[in-house]
């Protein structure tokens, strides 16, 4: 089983990202579970969402404490939330930022990877909404999900031009991160 924790701010689509990951992973042949950290969501406040992926049906219902992967949608969260908390030593923390991984001093043995997902989102979608771009990047970083499954899950949720533009951002993010794997 692989466990993923997504950090974001209310309104950035962290919960949607988790749901789309679950849909895509299932299409890809895995069992999946996605759930929010059940806060009283307010725009701008730090939020979390969780995803589990497994070859077998998933029964565990607790929150995720030792994630294999952490996705950080907004690098300003690093100063206010311990995004590395519990991350497995062989895990990966993926941060949306234009900075290099070395510029983050996190207390973790997990590898830090960065991607300017905001730039990719603006270029492809025309808006700084990075949730879909980042799950494309996650697919590239982890090799756990086929990017085609992510694109089809996203295009089903957002039909038409919006979905197509998101798919472009997903592919671009996937290609960049996959090349670093």
């Amino acid at each position: 089983m692989k466990e993923i924790r997504i950090h974001g701010r209310g309104g950035q689509g962290s919960v949607t990202a988790a749901e789309l990951l679950a849909v895509a992973a299932f299409e890809d042949g895995k069992y999946s579970q996605a759930f929010p950290a059940f806060g009283v969501e307010r725009r701008g406040a730090p939020v979390m969402a969780f995803v589990r992926l497994s070859d077998k049906p998933i029964r565990l219902r607790s929150q995720i404490y030792e994630p294999d992967y952490v996705i950080v949608q907004d690098a300003t969260l690093v100063d206010v939330v311990d995004v590395a908390r519990g991350a497995k030593p062989d895990g990966i923390i993926l941060i949306n930022t234009e900075k290099k991984p070395e510029s983050f001093k996190l207390e973790t043995k997990a590898a830090i990877k960065t991607l300017d997902a905001t730039r990719l989102a603006i270029d492809n979608i025309g808006k700084p909404i990075v949730n879909t771009t980042l799950i494309g990047a996650f697919a590239g970083v982890s090799g756990l999900i086929n990017p085609e499954s992510i694109k089809s899950a996203v295009m089903e949720r957002f039909p038409g031009k919006v979905g197509e533009n998101n798919a472009k951002a997903i592919q671009a993010a996937y290609d960049i991160m996959e090349a670093q794997r």
């Binding site: 988790a18 749901e19 679950a22 849909v23 299932f26 069992y31 999946s32 579970q33 996605a34 759930f35 929010p36 059940f38 049906p57 998933i58 219902r61």
Partner: peptide, 10 residues
């Protein structure tokens, strides 16, 4: 509540 009402699963 939430644990089952708000989870996405197959």
């Amino acid at each position: 509540g939430f644990i089952l009402s708000h989870v996405y699963e197959p």
